[in-house]
Amino acid sequence: MDKKMATTYTYSAFGINISSEIKIPEFLPSSGDIQVTVSYGEVPKKLDEKIINGFRFQISADEFIIRYKPWAAFYVCNGNKIIIQPEKDADENDIKTFLISSVIVMLLHQRGLLPLHASGIKVDNKAVLFAANAGVGKSTIALDLNRKYGYPLIADDVTVVSAINNLPVVYSSFPSAKLWQDSIEMLGLLNKDLPFIRKDVFKYRFDNRPAFFSGILEPLLIFVIENGDKENIEIQEIKGVDKFNVLRQHIFRAKMINEIYAVEHFKILTQLLKSVSCFKILKHNNSNTLNELSVTIQDTIKQW
């Protein structure tokens, strides 16, 4: 690829200032000191000292290569650099979609942060997180609580946790949600003409800039939401080591990175769990429970 006089854009996401040669309209603009650069260039064929050799990806402690055939290869290193090597005719939107989800999360891991598979809202000046597996409704519940009770949104899919002076903090991610059609119906967003995240991928991108809070927050509560087959919504506080075991399942891309960052994750996760309360919510595996779920969560938040 020809090296054009690259235009660079500067953004902030996950508490990091990023300079990027690729336009990322989903991120918020920033003018702070740059910590990470995203540029076009050549991706190494393979890593010399790989710890994991996966399907179209390789990982070492400080390096990560992934190939999204036939669109682009990505190289992430030292927690401060992402290089993109696009294939001929690659769609920039496809590249950006992979960049701001799976690829950037590896950079967060390299930076010694704890990315959780969770959405989040701001309650007073604290963070309330919703951790769940794909398809359970993380995005939907956060948006519904925003719509009903006005809580600002802080994350849709990935919430970054860190520890500063042994105290856990939560960084907001970026103001954009990915939603299935049924969530759009439930949230009454049908009148908005939303784009798909990618061509032929039937998930919509919803910009929620007006409802977004950008910044650092102290964590308050974590709700772990699971689908069950019981009629009623059940909510129960999780205590003790269980808390750790449950939340460890929700580290983002845990299956991909295996235990490479286990020490960092242990330290941050235990710091986090010492200062928040966790609740497990079992909801019925169908769409009609959103209202009841929001009310249950709001009641718990109010009592806190």
Binding site: G54, F55, F57, S101, S102, K199, D200, R253
Partner: peptide, 14 residues
């Protein structure tokens, strides 16, 4: 997803 590490929801069916 567990055996590849990929997030399927951002991929096409093909």
């Amino acid at each position: 997803e567990d055996n590849t590490g990929f997030d399927i929801s951002e991929l096409t069916a093909d």
